[in-house]
Design a binder for these strands. Structure first.
Length: 273
DNA sequence: AGTGGCTCCTGAGCGC
DNA sequence: TGCGCTCAGGAGCCAC
């Protein structure tokens, strides 16, 4: 499931392949995936437009076109945006195809949760899903005290707080569990109970796990692929996610699996306090 | 402001 | 082989 490192990897591979290319046409095979502006036609709005820039906010990918329109992509669970240099047949999960002046860009999504939404570029940061996002964890201005201040306002479990995109943008179930393991903090701990020393550990763990995730070109636990169709490799480094009932790689005790904040959460009751 | 439940979806994995 | 069940989950929404 694309979280921050995966979306960043898609952004980089897609930019490498499609920056400056023109969209000759778009074909929509499953209309709910392609959200247009008001009642304007999606394909008409992107047709004959040049892909000008790429950006990312949290788990959202922003693709700027030269007519003042931005495509905001959220992949949710199984969304993929893949560039093919040659003509590529569509399959049952292909929802949108962008025909470029060189190659094709296919949006597919098995579970149909993801969306490509068109917005006027000037208003992109105002749309509610982007406007409410918390800070980017890898921005230079994001310091541990920023994290501390934002956590201080929460009264939930630390796991719920990390998944809350308004607190910090880009973490999902995988990197939240991994960051908590590295910080040695139990996911069910109330946010208010965290000491400053633990928030510093957590801050460092979040930055570390996301940076390593990006360097590994993402985690391909199951479905994730970058825009070249390649898998990432961070799944090899996972300490807890998807390892419930298995031995902790640090201490050998059995990893616990529990629903916290409605999400399957894996942790080590020995290494995390 | 918090939690829990529901919704959107399909495929994998399991028991029988 | 195949049926039916459960599970996976990001985010928006609603009720409490």
């Amino acid at each position: 499931m694309p979280e921050l490192p995966e979306v960043e990897s898609i952004k980089l591979t897609l930019a490498k392949n499609t920056l400056g290319k023109k969209i000759l046409d778009a074909e929509i095979f499953w209309p709910p995936a392609a959200v247009s502006i008001a009642d304007l036609d999606f394909a008409e709005l992107v047709k004959d437009r040049v892909i000008e820039n790429f950006d990312r906010r949290g788990k959202y990918l922003l693709i700027g076109l030269n007519n003042g329109i931005t495509m905001i992509v959220h992949f949710r669970m199984t969304g993929r945006l893949i560039y093919y240099p040659e003509k590529q047949p569509v399959d049952k999960h292909t929802h949108v195809v962008f025909y470029l002046d060189e190659g094709e860009m296919h949006y597919s999504d098995i579970r149909k949760f993801g969306r490509i939404q068109l917005v006027p570029t000037q208003k992109a940061s105002d749309i509610s899903s982007l406007a409410k996002l918390g800070p980017e964890p890898l921005d230079e201005c994001f310091a541990f005290d920023t994290l501390g201040q934002r956590l201080a306002k929460k009264k939930s479990s630390i796991k719920a707080a990390l998944l809350d995109q308004a607190v910090i943008a880009g973490l999902g179930n995988i990197y939240a569990d991994e960051a908590l393991f590295r910080a040695g903090i139990l996911p069910g701990r109330n946010t208010q109970s965290l000491k400053v020393s633990e928030i510093i550990l957590l801050y460092n763990s979040i930055c570390e796990v996301l940076t390593e995730g990006i360097n590994a070109r993402g985690t391909s636990f199951r479905d994730y692929r970058d825009a070249d169709g390649n898998r990432g490799s961070f799944q090899e480094n996972l300490m807890v996610y998807g390892r419930g009932g298995m031995e902790c790689k640090e201490c050998g005790s059995l990893l616990q699996r529990e629903k916290i904040a409605g999400r399957t959460t894996v942790y080590c009751s020995q290494c995390q306090k």
